[in-house]
Nucleic acid binder design. Sequence first.
DNA 1: GTCTATGTTGACAACTCAGTCAACAAAAAA
DNA 2: TTTTTTGTTGACTGAGTTGTCAACATAGAC
Lengths: 212, 212
Amino acid sequence: MPRKNLKSVRTEEYSRTAFELLCEHGVSGTTVDKVATVAGVSKTNVLHYFGNKTKLLEMALRYGNADLAGEVRALLRRSHTPWERVYSVIFANFSKQYFTPKLAHAWMSLCAEVPHQKAYQRIQTAIHRRMRSNLVDALSKITDGETSERVALSISVMIDGLWMRSGLQSEGISRETALALIEAHLNALFPGDKDRLAARKRIAEICDILHP
Amino acid sequence: MPRKNLKSVRTEEYSRTAFELLCEHGVSGTTVDKVATVAGVSKTNVLHYFGNKTKLLEMALRYGNADLAGEVRALLRRSHTPWERVYSVIFANFSKQYFTPKLAHAWMSLCAEVPHQKAYQRIQTAIHRRMRSNLVDALSKITDGETSERVALSISVMIDGLWMRSGLQSEGISRETALALIEAHLNALFPGDKDRLAARKRIAEICDILHP
DNA sequence: GTCTATGTTGACAACTCAGTCAACAAAAAA
DNA sequence: TTTTTTGTTGACTGAGTTGTCAACATAGAC
């Protein structure tokens, strides 16, 4: 059996540790030394694998984002209709495991650095682009092209805003409130759409099964 | 004539300088030394007036926020109907002068520090509370209490999300796109409301007059 | 047993930054 | 003119951080 490369094992291990510290202390509060100490190795060793701090945090953010991406994929895989795909994106973003203040902190830290760090900008752009294309692809089966772009944008803007709130207020917005707000928005745009309501119910159920 | 206190002159001067650096370089990139150099004085002098860096940045953020608050007040003063007050809040937040990537950067920097700095948390909370109360007060004249709360929240969440986008993407969201998104949202919630449309037109005109 | 590739680390250099302190300058009051 | 108050600063301390380098450890190859 082909033993897993030690390099990739270490890389993932340190990325995970860095990501956890990032959630707790933000970008400026996360030092290479702390990551090394928590991981139980020397700072030199961490630097050996990543070269510098920016690369380390970049990998840490990719690690954290991979989770969310996986959540979206898991729901999309079980979706059969356009509306189910729309709700997959929404429910994944407010999943019980991932819609937490800590993750929101890490994400806001990233966003604050984006204007000054190209590497972080790429990650952020990728996240937004993926969300947009998932939403537009699904919505364009439901309405015209221009409307799908507009609705996709408004949904993702609301998601951003809601994540921000959850990170800011100590008693931030709950998963239920967040979902209710998006639902009210969609309900105003597509009132009484049977397909939509059925899709919402089904994806909500799948969500409950995946995270009991 | 009573000469203005030198202390308050310096305080405002340094706050403004700090705020400009904050827009340009974010919280971690803004050092006491840089503020002092740009203002043309010694670091010791800046520290003399503010005590420590956190206080300095706190005042800087208050300084920056006072501008936006003034914009809201200017429009509210000229509003006569509930819908005009709602649109005052919206248009002020996307005013030509203030809805800029640089201001968005400064604001995101602040938000990223909120979870770790009580002083910044207070400022952020005050901003949100003021926006909420302005919106709810106006909306409660239009619909029932529960709906006003919900709509006020959705509007302010969208405003947050749009500001975030404008800070993130180099070619961020334009003022026009932002206003169009909010408008589509309100139009879906209150379709064809004559009072609303008239109010929107009037506040837009006042905005044009104030910022030609 | 020796050699080599791989993994690991302690010590250290270089730098940045917040905050302190004692002293200096100048204007106002006496 | 002398004294006091107000404003200002250079020099320094001390903590914290990134990144380098030469050396050490170890397991498998020869």
